[in-house]
Design a protein around this nucleic acid. Structure first.
Lengths: 139, 139
DNA sequence: GGTAAACCTTCTAGTCACTAGAGGGTCAAG
DNA sequence: CTTGACCCTCTAGTGACTAGAAGGTTTACC
């Protein structure tokens, strides 16, 4: 199968597939007489795995590790579990940060009285300390 | 004041300050005889504003707009409000996505029975459709 | 056989917001 | 007069792609 069909089957752009090959995430397929990449079912499987992991937010390096583990069928599943848990912790951390951010931004926006910039509370909120504009004024 | 002191006062690396100057976010200060950047209080204010906005997740382009608005003191505050609200919506969207992600990842991890890779539910969860490995097997 | 469209190839450079490093210049203290 | 802390410019790297240029291949149709 050509790269376009693999792209369709995995919902991935052809450029991304070539990029994955370039960084060694997807094995280079054989080429046709016309130098076209010639993929087989195993590539579809591998790429679907990769894309699904990306959807779940795993990094390329994490996926590289997962792919290596997935091939060693006798090995314990614990290493996989560890990668997934590490990723989950990262997501939880981001959620905490974003939630704090939302609260803060909501508070900032809630103070808007829709007056002029000069009395804008949002702008004021963006200056952390008691630093004020001195537009030609004397300090 | 030299770039190092501005860096300390604003909790920003000197490289970042030079970067902000390069992209036109911070006005180029005058230079000393020895070609050192020579900052004044206004720069501290401006950079604090910028850094605080970055902490709140505003993009450089949003900050560029906010800075332009902040200088026009007669103008209505609504444009500022609009930028902040747009950003808040973006944050809410990310929170939704990330929450869904956490749920999904928790479910995936919860299925781990700590056996071998061959029977690993996490690995299985990473293959979206009913695509299976055929390690030499006949399809 | 000709040709046009759809597909493929490689290579390069752009995105975002910095960060790191090379290779040098300046300045104050001892 | 040298040491060390600071500063300068310029270039390249990060992650995970994405876009575009300039060309080659295949397929469908006349």
């Amino acid at each position: 199968m050509h790269i376009g069909e693999l792209a369709r089957l995995t919902d991935t752009k052809a450029e991304t597939i070539r990029y994955y090959e370039q960084i060694g995430l997807l094995a280079p397929p054989p080429r046709t007489a016309g130098n076209y990449r010639d993929y087989a079912a195993a590539h579809v499987h591998r790429l679907r795995f990769t894309r699904r992991a990306r959807e779940l937010g795993f990094s390329i390096e994490q996926i590289r590790a997962l792919l290596a583990l997935a091939d060693d069928r006798e090995q314990s599943c614990d290493a996989v579990d560890a990668i997934a848990r590490a990723h989950l912790n990262e997501i939880k951390r981001k959620l905490t940060d974003l939630t704090a951010l939302r609260r803060e931004l909501e508070s900032v926006i809630g103070q808007c009285r829709h007056g002029t910039i000069a009395e804008c509370r949002i702008i004021e909120s963006l200056v952390p300390l008691g630093v004020t504009h001195h537009h030609g004024g004397r300090p």
